[in-house]
Amino acid sequence: MCLGIPGEIVDLHAGRDDLATVDVAGVRRAVNIGLLDKDEVRVGDWVLIHVGFALSKIDEAEAAATLEMLNGLGEAYTDELRALAESDIT
């Protein structure tokens, strides 16, 4: 359920503080940002869009940490494989 797509805020609407324009791979749409803390929304922020509303801000530091963890799991495994291939117990 609940399709949510990341988009970048490219414009905050003057005179309508609950609206922002987001960009998803070059596709733009106005979304309602009334569910976010308005003082913390800036152009360049990434938000998760669901049925025309920004449901939450995407935390870039957390995103980077998750990726680092995933890549780390991958690399460590590759290292283990290499070690296994290189080990010679005969």
Binding site: P6, A25, L70
Partner: peptide
């Protein structure tokens, strides 16, 4: 697409598997 493509990497998936 940011926050999308980087979570679809096949090589990482193989390691995770």
């Amino acid at each position: 697409m940011r926050f999308v493509n980087e979570y679809r990497d096949a090589a990482t998936a193989r390691a995770l598997a």
